[in-house]
Amino acid sequence: MHNFDFVKPATIADAAKALAGDGAQALSGGQTLIPTMKQRLAAPGVLVSLTGIAEMQGVCMGDGGLHIGAATPHAVVAREAAKHYPALAALAGGIGDPAVRSRGTIGGSIANNDPAACYPSAVLASGATVVTNKRKIAADDYFQGLFTTALEEGEFIIEVVFPIPAKAAYVKFNQPASRFALTGVFVAKFANGVRVGVTGAGNDGVFRWSDAEKALSADFSAGAIAGLKVDPAGMNTDLHGSAAYRANLVKVLTQRAVSAA
């Protein structure tokens, strides 16, 4: 790994200043970024750790729903979100393995926007709001394709605010070696309709399955989408699963999530 200057600011303002510099890159839990740097796929000149900022830590109920600080590790979300938003807590408790969950954070996950990461499906399906040091971004505007988000240079996530649905569940089909989702589906039922977020399957990253949302908003049952088909044309293919296989998983996992919600 190439060397870099390491800084660990204690406030959001200091972090913003550090990240405005040339060649600066934000570091959260590092569970993806550090392996990436070891492979020299990333070589920042300055690494700005965001895990020492108290305002970016923790889980609490507030305006608009459940607020989760961007630097909150998965293990903390799994424990502390359980009574407010059990489906989200269960998702966090199923990411990677225990050691990854000690370090990896929600902000890191959605800033990276890995197409097989778990959290993006929950953020999208919940219609959550991504709060950065500059603005608030609706989930529908935030995810913009593989490893691509609405975040601009020097912008970083402070917290994510989740409206709490009446019913929700996440069902993940594990890729057992990486423990990422081969496909994962998050279903959330709100008073004004159902949202379905799909990760691991789409060839352009996380997406909403709008046909299923329409059918489930009219009738929230696994049977309501029995007649729907997912077009394999939009699905990812790799050695772990073909596009047709993933297209089938999207439907099966959506049905399972509806039954589990």
């Binding site: 390491f6 660990k8 590092g30 550090i34 690494l47 370090r103």
Partner: peptide, 10 residues
């Protein structure tokens, strides 16, 4: 934690 995936300075 995986000590190979944490910086000492962090």
């Amino acid at each position: 934690v995986k000590s190979c995936t944490v910086f000492a300075a962090d």
